[in-house]
Design a protein around this nucleic acid. Structure first.
Length: 615
RNA sequence: GCCGCCGUAGCUCAGGGGUAGAGCGCGCCCUUGGUAAGGGCGAGGCCGUAAGUUCAAUUCUUACCGGCGGCACCA
């Protein structure tokens, strides 16, 4: 006799075991019609699941957020069913819901083509209109293994063997399609909303590059067609703010195949880049940093001493001279920084010593990972190494965190996630030292009252780290800043200072970068602002555009006066109509256009037009 | 690095076994026009690179290079 409590606080008693759909029906026919799932004591379940004991339930309809994930998951199942109908020899593997949609990974010899996608999508619509019942069954482990092995679904069989003993093996059946799945699912295939298949891609089985590659099909799914269309529209918008496209339109930079992953900065792009450096230089000086510069190329022995040769070799560019000496082009700035520190005998009085370097590093990144400015092989870090005593670690970390957050705010990033990564399994240093460093790092965050996520075991082998992830205007996350505590390098490269006791001591070394890579940060800024950079960052702030050539001299005067005020201004006295000039400079995202005609000359004024305005 | 797709003018792209086309941009001329494209004429291409098939390859095949979308990597 279950007593069912509903969200509005009322309870209903049922004579026998009752299912979600029956409860919904007993409340009202329209609810029964709209019901997709039921939440029982906080767990999302199938509507058909029998409830035999007292429970708090909630009927989930298309309006509830929870429904969307299930709609996406069901879309994945329908995708798999369609593929199995079209190509029965294809093996199914896994197919989860993801942000905005779903995917399903298939094992088959020939990859899917774009044309296949259309075919599959048609078949999926077919399955939806068949409105097949989706039924849950619990099987024994043996039966399930047997069934999937017999069916040639070896991946499914492998998944079952990996499930914990106590976990029930649930099977979902829709039409002739039978899939191993935890669920829950909608009552039938007709209940999914609007979906669209988007792309095919390769993906490794279980996400491991050692494993075979599967064929993944991505799709997006929504409760309604309207939401789907909105999403597709959003994708188009996102494409418009792609920094690679805007980089061309704004004439900021280009790439070419002789140097994959390396930027050719154009004058305006380089001006933007320099603005970032100038800004950072100013902030760092105020924060008590000194700036150095160290060689791009150093002898192999340096990298052997630092440990990079052993652990980072595959990412390093090297060069060999006529006399057969091997040099490496630096992939990191830290060994150079340590050399500057240890070039003098240091006193504890000099600590903390904050040494910054805008160092250009080269890393041989995998070809498939290159992506515009976001992932390059040659980039400039706003790097710094802080040498300090163990007791200074926490204060120094606090200052770095404060500096980072304050700087991000200046660039319009208020939403910053902080992640804390502690000791990994493979590490150096004693547990006592790790305790000290971790508590110093966490203490810094705690003392400042910042919330942070913990990534257990994700720290560097030489010390714990903090990562700063910022969210851009369209909600994407970017890891930029990082703060790492290091005991390894000072040891390996023999950095030390003389303590108050007159003895040599090992300093702690903090590695930190705020923008991370200046190239990447530039890319993020371009996309965040959709190219409409704030005035202070804009590499070209004002264009002085003449309406007729008769006033060219006046335009020159205005230009000179703007430039003398420190504004980045250019002149456009080409023989073109003003509308044409406005259009061209608007596409190039120039924030201010000053239009000059006879009227302005007469009154000794200017007509100002802000980017995007009507007039 | 792995899977798939792509590589034709500065850009965006069409074409297709008989050595190439559009729009924009660029140059010259006309036009001096008041807030997102005024008009005319013209110049621009070893069809990514190399091999193979063929009487003939930009077109078909293969390899390589590069790009794009994912995966893996990075952080």
């Amino acid at each position: 006799m279950p007593i069912i409590k509903l969200p509005d606080g009322t309870s209903r008693e049922y004579d026998t075991t009752v299912s979600g759909i029956e409860i919904a029906a007993s409340i009202g026919p329209s609810l029964a019609k709209a019901a997709l799932l039921v939440e029982v004591n906080g767990d999302l379940c199938d509507l058909s699941l029998p409830i035999s004991e007292d429970a708090e339930i909630r009927i989930i309809t298309e309006k509830d957020e929870e429904a969307l994930e299930v709609i996406r998951h069901d879309s994945a199942h329908i995708l798999a069913e369609a593929v199995k109908e079209l190509w029965p020899e294809t093996q199914v593997t896994i197919g989860p819901a993801i942000d905005n949609g779903f995917y399903y990974d298939f094992a088959r010899e020939t990859p899917f083509s774009i044309e296949d996608l259309e075919l599959i999508e048609k078949r999926m619509l077919d399955i939806v209109s068949r409105n097949e019942k989706i039924e849950r069954e619990v099987w024994s482990r043996n039966d399930a293994t047997e069934f999937f092995s017999q069916a040639g679904e070896h991946y499914k069989a492998e998944i079952i063997s990996g499930l914990p003993e106590e976990e029930p093996i649930t099977i979902y059946r829709q039409g002739k399609f039978v899939d191993l799945c935890r669920g829950p699912h909608l009552p039938s295939t007709g209940r999914v909303g609007a979906f669209k298949l988007l792309k095919v891609a390769g993906a490794y089985w279980r996400g491991d590059s050692q494993n075979e590659m599967l064929q993944r099909i991505y799709g997006t799914a929504w409760s309604t067609k309207k939401e789907l269309d909105l999403y597709l529209q959003r994708l188009e918008e996102a494409e418009k703010r792609d920094h690679r496209r805007l980089g061309r339109q704004m004439d900021l930079f280009h790439f070419q195949e002789e140097s994959p992953g390396a930027v050719f900065w154009h004058p305006k792009g380089w001006r933007l880049f320099r603005s970032l450096v100038d800004y950072m230089r100013e902030r760092q000086e105020l924060a008590g940093y000194v700036e150095i510069n160290t060689p791009e190329i150093m002898d192999r022995s340096m990298w052997e001493a630092s440990g990079h040769w052993q652990t980072f070799r595959q990412h390093m560019f090297t060069t060999q001279t006529e006399d057969s000496r091997i040099f490496a082009i630096k992939p990191m700035n830290c060994p150079g920084g340590v050399q500057v520190f240890r070039n003098n005998l240091r006193s504890y009085r000099e600590l903390p010593m904050r040494i910054a370097e805008f160092g250009k590093v080269h890393r041989y990144e995998p070809s498939g990972s290159l992506h515009g400015l976001m992932r390059v092989r040659a980039f400039t870090q706003d790097d710094a190494h802080i040498f300090c005593t163990e007791s200074q670690v926490q204060d120094e970390c606090c200052s770095v965190v404060e500096l980072i957050l304050s700087i991000y705010k200046d660039f319009g990033f208020a939403d910053v996630k902080i992640k804390f990564a502690d000791r990994p399994e493979v590490r150096i240093g004693s547990d006592e030292t790790w305790d000290k460093l971790e508590s110093a790092l966490r203490g810094a965050l705690d003392s400042m009252g910042y919330k942070y996520e913990v990534n257990p075991g994700e720290g560097a082998f030489y010390g714990p780290k903090i990562e700063f992830v910022l969210t851009d205007a369209i909600g994407r996350e970017w890891q930029c800043g990082t703060l790492q505590v290091d005991l390894n390098l000072p040891e390996r490269l023999d950095a030390n200072y003389i303590g108050i006791d007159g003895e040599k001591h090992r300093p702690v070394m903090l590695h930190r970068a705020l923008f991370g890579s200046l190239e990447r940060f530039t890319g993020i800024l371009i996309e965040h602002y959709s190219g409409n950079l704030p005035l202070w960052l804009s590499p070209l702030q004002v264009v002085v555009a003449s309406i007729t050539n008769e006033i060219d001299d006046y335009a020159r005067q205005v230009l000179d006066s703007l430039r003398s005020k420190g504004l980045k201004a250019e002149l456009d006295i080409r023989n073109e109509k003003i509308g044409y000039k406005i259009r061209e400079h608007s596409i190039a995202k120039v924030p201010i256009i000053v239009a000059l005609g006879a009227r302005e000359v007469e009154n000794n004024t200017v007509a100002i037009r802000r980017l995007g305005s009507k007039n």
